[in-house]
Design a protein around this nucleic acid. Structure first.
Length: 553
RNA sequence: AGGGCUGUCGCCAAGCGGUAAGGCACCAGACUUUGACUCUGGCAUUUCGUAGGUUCAAAUCCUGCCAGCCCUGCCA
């Protein structure tokens, strides 16, 4: 990554930079941040912002960032997710090394801290049922009331908590609660539950525990245990900060981590919620967590987005406290910009129509040399076969063309990219009137590279030699949903994927690797589908189309 | 007896009392063997959610109002 550019995050997120500098003074390199996902799903582009913000801040100041699996609720977690999360973060370009931690590794320390709180008279074992606790909590606008078990003796609390740990009670029978204040307007402070009983096998700690700490209790402790200086999280946790600070203070940690919140972002016409993504996967509405239409990192990767494009997007999109809804076109911009000079530019015809060059010798094949990327000469050239029968894009022909149509039409001359000027003379139709072939002639003089300068032509179109072309499938994507004013806020797009199964590409695609990206000239950027493409049956995903200022009438 | 946070161009976003950066999108033009790229120009001054106030001076400070988001899981 380029260093000049990489500092632009310091042009935004200034409220974070200010805190860091105030707290650390000259020693900003001591910063330690963390990204703490619960391993209960795949990372998506929204989570990537939290990944990026935490890792990037540490990177900017030369500090450290931990990946910590916040696995305090065993009923919804799975190792499949821990592996995908590690993989996705490294794919984004952040080195994890020995900085991978598990909240579940701290269960002993957390238990001891809870005992300490009980001993200080700051926590108690409560027998209220879930419904009662809800009732006692009060509402947004009315205060709560105190639990009748709030004033148990320290000795009794200690004995009961130990019994909870030893499995003497059933799920839900008892909880451990912090003793704070049932009358606070901030509901998080109304004697929050800090331990619950769950006789469930944990993916990491197995059956060692049947009590598990709640997020609000576990999180500040995890941060403190790891020496986190700045805990950068999304803004819905702002109301939890007083509780976070309460635990840090009550437990007398030497270094006090500080929580700073930033706003989440949304993308227009995109549902990012984990619940929704999971539902799409479970209902088989998509082809897994890595479906190219999904905004999971796995999906974006399979779609062909590069980590550089994502990082630039996250960088430029900024970090603030104001909720934002970013246009998808902003993401697309960074994808094109990244791919522009590093992709081989080749020709593929997605929706073919046959062209016969009537005055071109039967059986003749010319190998034309065409540059791989006009803006990057280092990418060299390749040889592309040209022959009597070609395919061009159906869209590139029009029978009754308006004057602003610079492509093929009867009587009009256009340039075939890297080849000759071609004039269309005749349209061949089948019985039902569908165009099945265009008969054209070429002008030998106009061969590309010959220096021909006799006349100019307005349009250049791409083509592929019929006998040499490789038949491919090209998949074109659109939004899974469109935003609307309905109650749920969106409706499904019935045509979010279009499979062009009769597409043809230059022979060179046979040598394509899974991590290659191509520009199919005038059609957009494509890459092989890592799941469905195989030799002999290539499947390409369109990463992003090219921009176009052409407006059909 | 509700609390917290946020409002600067269509979308992001700088701005921290001295007279509205930048990017995306869009529009116009130039160039072009991709209608791409690139380049040039345009794009918030009856203006910073709104109404008042303080000040020589306000997007920046104060007050009221309005709008949006979050909070009543033994989820994170």
């Amino acid at each position: 990554m380029s260093e000049e550019k990489s500092f632009s995050m310091s042009e935004t997120a200034n409220f974070i930079h200010e805190c860091i500098k105030n707290d650390l003074g000259e020693n900003t390199q001591n910063i330690v941040t963390r990204f703490p996902p619960e391993p209960n799903g795949y990372l998506h582009i929204g989570s990537a912002k939290a990944v990026y913000t935490n890792f990037r801040m540490a990177e900017i100041y030369g500090g450290k960032c931990n990946l910590r699996f916040d696995d305090t609720n065993p009923m919804r977690e799975d190792v499949e997710y821990v592996n995908s999360i590690k993989n996705d973060i490294e794919w984004l370009g952040f080195k994890l090394g020995d900085r991978i931690f598990y909240a579940s590794d701290y269960f002993d320390k957390m238990y001891n801290c809870a005992v300490k709180l009980i001993e200080k008279g700051k926590a108690f074992v409560c027998d209220l049922t879930a419904e009662q606790i809800k009732e006692y909590r009060g509402t947004l606008s009315t205060p709560g009331k105190e639990s009748p078990f709030r004033n148990r003796t320290i000795e009794e609390n200690l004995r009961l908590f130990s019994a909870m740990k030893n499995g003497e009670f059933k799920d839900g029978e008892k909880t451990l609660r912090a003793k704070i204040d049932m009358f606070r307007p901030n509901i998080n402070m109304r004697d929050p539950i800090i331990y619950r009983i769950a006789h469930v096998t944990h993916h990491n700690s197995g059956d060692k525990w049947c009590i598990y700490p709640m997020y609000d209790y576990a999180h500040p402790l995890e941060d403190a245990f790891e020496g986190i200086t700045h805990s950068l999280c999304s803004i819905e946790f702002e109301d939890h900060r007083p509780l976070y600070d309460w635990f840090i203070n009550e437990l007398d940690f030497e270094v006090k981590p500080r929580q700073i919140e930033f706003a989440k972002f949304y993308i227009k016409n995109t549902v990012m919620g984990k619940r929704y993504l999971r539902q799409l996967v479970e209902n088989n509405e998509v082809d897994g967590w890595d479906d190219p239409r999904m905004v999971t990192l796995a999906g974006l990767r399979r779609r062909g987005y590069t980590p550089e494009a994502l990082r630039n997007f996250l960088e430029q999109t900024g970090v603030s406290k104001a909720m934002s809804v970013v246009d998808y076109s902003y993401l697309e911009h960074f994808a094109r910009e990244d791919l522009k000079t590093k992709s081989k530019v080749i020709m593929a015809v997605l929706d073919p129509i046959k062209v016969v060059i009537t005055n071109y010798p039967e059986g003749k094949v010319e190998m034309l040399e065409i540059e791989n990327n006009q803006e990057n000469e280092a990418m060299g050239t390749r040889l592309v076969p040209f022959s009597k029968e070609l395919y061009v894009e159906r869209d590139d022909f029009m029978e009754d063309a308006p004057s602003k149509f610079f492509r093929l039409s009867v009587g009009k001359e256009v340039r075939f990219k890297g080849a000759y000027f071609i004039t269309c003379n005749e349209v061949v139709k089948d019985k039902s009137g569908n165009i099945i072939q265009l008969n054209c002639t070429y002008d030998e003089e106009t061969r590309s590279g010959s220096g021909f300068n006799g006349r100019k032509v307005k349009g250049t179109i791409h083509w592929v030699s019929a006998q040499h072309a490789v038949k491919i499938e090209a998949r074109l994507f659109d939004f899974l949903v469109f935003s609307d004013d309905s109650e749920q806020g969106y409706h499904k797009n019935p045509s979010s994927i279009v499979k062009m199964q009769n597409a043809y590409a230059e022979p060179c695609v046979n040598e394509a690797n899974y991590d290659d990206r191509f520009q199919f000239i005038r059609n957009g950027y494509f890459c092989l589908d890592s799941r469905d493409s195989r030799p002999g049956a290539l499947v390409f995903n369109r990463i992003v189309p090219l921009k176009s200022s052409y407006k059909p009438e």
